[in-house]
Design a binder for these strands. Structure first.
Lengths: 388, 388
DNA sequence: TGAATATCTATGGACTCCACAATAAATCGG
DNA sequence: CCGATTTATTGTGGAGTCCATAGATATTCA
C-alpha cells in the first residue's frame, strides 16, 4: 500500500485516523493514556487529537470507569452511530435489507418475501420496500446511509452488472446500480451472494480472521466463493468459484442424489434434501448412501479448489449446511483421497442473514477505503456522494 | 496497509520514502521540480528532503540535462547500486545464482551444472560454488547482499522447509535456510521454483502488471503457480497449484502422450517431447494427435484453476513453452468447452533465468517491505542482518 | 549585450509534536 | 474528617518540518 507523506496537516490527519482506528478496534472505550499508548503519540498531543475528533463529531466522551486509584480518566468511544450502511440480500425467496452502524452492528432490517416466479420489476419493487422498511425501523432516511452493497445470485462483473444467472429467467442484465441509484445518493456496490456470505463468515462468523478460505454454498444450486489474503477474490469477470461448471465434477446434477433418493420418495424437490438428511441422521442406509454420493461429488469440485489454493479453512454454507452434522463428516471422508492435506472444515453459523451482513461488511469496507486512503479527508461525519 | 502517524520525524521519513519511491518508479533521473510535483511537497521542502537523501547515500546527483530554457536543473537518480540481492535457482540440471541491484537489473551470475543423480550434499556444494562465482563476477562480498531468495523444486512451507519432492529422492527435508545461513547474514527466503517463475513473469515478463494470473509449468513434471491480487499466493502449507494431483486431470501421466507417441519412436524420454512438437509443426498427423491429447489433459487441470479463480491471464511456461507455437493453440482449443471465458494465454518469455530472476524479485520485495513498513527506518544504505 | 525563462537560495511564519512542570480529582489509611 | 498517594489534566517553552514569498543565479534566444 502506498504510504504518502505530505505536510503537517497530513501528519495530523494520519494521527486522527490512527486514533479512530484504535478506538474502533478496541473492545470498549479508551482513556487518553491508553490511546496514547496505542497510537504511539505523547499524552499532550493525544489531548489535541482527541479534542479535534470530538469537535468534528467522530468520537464521544463516556462517563469515567468507577473504582480504581487516582483521578478517574475521561473515556472516549468511537461514534459508530455517526453513520450507517445498508446491506441487501436479493434472493430467490426473500429480499432482506439490513442497516448497520459503522461498527457493523445491525440496527434495523426489512424483509419482503418473494418467489422464483416474481418478475424482475416486482423483485426490484420488493427491494425498494425492504429498504423502506429498514429505514423506517431504524428511524433513518436515505441521507443517513454512507454506503450500500447488494448481493444478487448470478455472476456480477466489476461494473455491477448481473451477467449470468440461471435460477431466475429474467434477472440477467438487470441494472441494480441504476435502480438503487435513483433513490440512494451514496456509493453502491453489487456483488455475488455467495461471495458476500463468505465475507460475512470471515468477518463475523466461523472464519473470523482467517486469511485464505474456500466457502462452499451447498444447496440446491451449488456454488463457491474465495477469500484470499484476507480479501474477497472477485476475479477478472466476476466468475470465480465456478468449478462446478466442469462436467466431471458433477455439481450440476449432484443434488439429484438427494432429491431422487428413495429416502425422500414422494416429497417435493425442495423438501427432499432435508428429509434425506433427517433419515441419514437416524441411520437409514438409503439416506446414508445418498448423502455419501452427494458428498463424493461435492468433494470433487472442492478438492480442485483446495488443491489449487491450499486454503487454511473450508466453510460449509448454503441450505444444506443446516445438516452439517451429517454432511460434514461425509465431505471430509470424501476429500481425504484427493487432497495432500485436508483443510479444516467448519459449518457456517450466520444463518439466513449472512448475505445481507456480508453486504454490509462490504459497504463498510468501501467506507473505510475512502477514509484511510491517502487522499481521504476526515471532515465532519457525513454521507459521501456518488461520483457519477 | 496500516498507515500510522507519529511525530515530525516520522513525517520526514514518509516524505523521504515517497521521494525514493518516486525516483525508483521514474524512468530516468528527476529534477527537484519534477520530484516536488510527484511527491506533492513544496519545492523548498524538496530541497531539504533531497539533501537529506544525498547525505544518507540513497540518491546521487546526475549532470543536468542539456538544452532547454532557463537555468539547468540539477537532476537526481536513485542509487540502485547501493545494495544488491541474490536470487538462486536450485534445479535438477543446474544451479544458477543471479545478483541484481536494487532496481532488479542483473549485474552478475554464476552457474553450475548438476544432474538428477547429484546427491543432496553435492547439490548444496554446487549452490555454494554458484554463489561464489556470482560474487566474484560482481566484485562483491556476502556483506553486500541485502537479501537472498532461492527457488527449489517441491513444496516449500512457510518456514522454508522443502516438505515434499518427487523428482530428487534425497532432497525432501533439506534445510536450505540453515545451509545458506551459515555463509550469508542477510534475510533468506525459500520458495517453490514455479512460483518464482510466475513472479518473474509478472514483474519482468509477459505478465507485467497483471494482478491475477495462473502460471502453467508445462514440462515433464507439470505444475502451476498463482499470482492473486498482484501477490504470489503461497497457501497455508505451500502446496498451491497442485490440481494435477487429482487423478481425473491426468497430469501425472499426460507427458506420456508425447513421450510414447509414434512420432518420437526411439528417442530418449527427455528428447521425445521436442521431437513430437517439431513433427507437429510440420503437420505430422501422429504428432498433432499426441499434442492434442496432451493439451486436452493439460486443459482439464487448467480449466479447474481458471474456473476457480477467473484470472485475467494464463502464462504458459516450463520446457514445453518453447513450443508454444504448437501447444498454445491446442491448449486454447481444449479449454474452450470447459470455461465460461477462456482467458488470454501468453507464452513465457524469460527463458532459463526465470526462476533466478523471480527469486531476486522476491528478495527485493522483502527488502522493500522492510523499508516501507511503518517501523522501517531509513538509515544509511546497509545490508540488514537476519534476526535469527 | 539584454530580455526571457527556469532554477536555486534564504527568510519568516504557521503548524504539530514532545518534554516537563504545575494543577486537579479521586482513593486509602489513620 | 484530613493528609498522603495515585493518576489524570492543563499549560508553557522548545524543536522540527513544511509552506509561501522574494531575491539571486545560470542558461538560452534575439
Amino acid at each position: 500500500m502506498q504510504v504518502n507523506g505530505g505536510d503537517l496537516q497530513r501528519l495530523r490527519q494520519l494521527n486522527l485516523l490512527s486514533s479512530i482506528r484504535a478506538l474502533r478496534e478496541a473492545t470498549g472505550p479508551l482513556t487518553l493514556t491508553e490511546l496514547a499508548a496505542r497510537t504511539g503519540l505523547s499524552r499532550g498531543s493525544m489531548v489535541d487529537v482527541v479534542t479535534d475528533l470530538q469537535d468534528r463529531g467522530w468520537i464521544a466522551e463516556v462517563e469515567p470507569a468507577p473504582g480504581g486509584m487516582g483521578r478517574p480518566a475521561k473515556r472516549y468511544r468511537f461514534r459508530a452511530d455517526a453513520g450507517h450502511v445498508l446491506g441487501i440480500d436479493i434472493g430467490v425467496h426473500k429480499v432482506l435489507a439490513i442497516i448497520t452502524d459503522l461498527a457493523g452492528r445491525a440496527v434495523a432490517s426489512g424483509r419482503v418475501a418473494v418467489t422464483p416466479a416474481t418478475t424482475r420489476d416486482e423483485r426490484l419493487e420488493a427491494v425498494d420496500r425492504a429498504i423502506d422498511a429498514a429505514l423506517v425501523a431504524g428511524g433513518l432516511t436515505t441521507l443517513d446511509l454512507w454506503g450500500v452493497a447488494a448481493g444478487s445470485i448470478g455472476v456480477v462483473n466489476r461494473e455491477g452488472m448481473v451477467t449470468r444467472v440461471t435460477a431466475l429467467p429474467d434477472w440477467a442484465g438487470v441494472d441494480l446500480i441504476g435502480h438503487l441509484g435513483r433513490r440512494l445518493s451514496c456509493p453502491i456496490t453489487i456483488e455475488n451472494d455467495s461471495k458476500l456470505a463468505a465475507l460475512a463468515e470471515q468477518r463475523l462468523g466461523v472464519a473470523a480472521g482467517v486469511r485464505d478460505l474456500v466457502y462452499l454454498h451447498a444447496g440446491r444450486r451449488p456454488g463457491a466463493a474465495l477469500i484470499l489474503n484476507g480479501l474477497l477474490h472477485h476475479g477478472f469477470s466476476g466468475a470465480t468459484g465456478e468449478v462446478g461448471l466442469m462436467d466431471i465434477t458433477g455439481w450440476r446434477t449432484m443434488a439429484g442424489h438427494l432429491e431422487n433418493s428413495p429416502a425422500a420418495a414422494g416429497a417435493a424437490p425442495e423438501d427432499a434434501a432435508g428429509l434425506v438428511f433427517a433419515s441419514a441422521r437416524t441411520g437409514d442406509p438409503a439416506a446414508l448412501a445418498a448423502v455419501d454420493a452427494y458428498a463424493d461429488q461435492l468433494a470433487l469440485g472442492t478438492a480442485a479448489m483446495v488443491l489449487t489454493l491450499d486454503p487454511e479453512l473450508v466453510v460449509l454454507g448454503g441450505g444444506f449446511s443446516r445438516s452439517a452434522d451429517v454432511l460434514l463428516p461425509a465431505l471430509r471422508r470424501a476429500l481425504e483421497p484427493h487432497c495432500l492435506r485436508v483443510p479444516e472444515i467448519r459449518p457456517s453459523t450466520l444463518g439466513e442473514e449472512c448475505v445481507s451482513l456480508g453486504a454490509a461488511c462490504l459497504a463498510l469496507d468501501h467506507v473505510d477505503d475512502r477514509f484511510f486512503s491517502p487522499q481521504g479527508s476526515i471532515s465532519r461525519p457525513a454521507a459521501p456522494q456518488r461520483l457519477t
